[in-house]
């Protein structure tokens, strides 16, 4: 379980590094964020939700069944869009932040 940050997409805002509950994300000399301690990620997805440009890929480690598929999010006011990318296929799920879980 971990994340990887797309350096090309990162806009140097530093928000992911700020919220990571483990302090695992740091910014390099160009202020681009990267995960310095990938094995220490809890998988909480706090960083994803901060990223306005969808630069953070959240994936399952191969040791827990990961096969290369990843997830990222985009925030749109009351909605949070979750994108799961499997090769060229992209699944989108949207949760309404104001709506409660049914289960």
């Amino acid at each position: 379980m971990s994340i990887r940050i797309d350096k090309g997409k990162c806009v140097r805002c530093g928000q992911c590094a700020l919220v990571c509950p483990g302090g695992l994300i740091v910014q390099d000399e160009e202020k681009k964020a990267y995960i310095k301690y990938p094995k220490d990620c809890w998988g909480c997805a706090a960083c994803l939700k901060e990223c306005k440009v969808g630069a953070i890929k959240y994936f399952l480690g191969a040791d827990i069944g990961g096969k290369g598929v990843y997830l990222y999010t985009l925030d749109e006011q009351d909605f949070l869009h979750w994108f799961i990318v499997n090769n060229d296929i992209q699944h989108r799920m949207t949760s309404n932040k104001r709506e409660s879980n049914k289960y």
Binding site: M1, G43, A45, Y58, F59, L60, I64, G65, G66, K67, V69, Y70, L71, L80, W82, I84, N86, H91, M93, S95, N101, K102, Y103
Partner: peptide, 24 residues
């Protein structure tokens, strides 16, 4: 409908599980 409900419920607390279901 229940399956979709579970996908969303897990995204809101343990997104790795929804990712696993979709990935598999």
């Amino acid at each position: 409908e229940q399956e979709q409900g579970l996908y969303k419920a897990y995204l809101n607390m343990a997104p790795a599980q929804t990712l696993k279901w979709v990935e598999q």
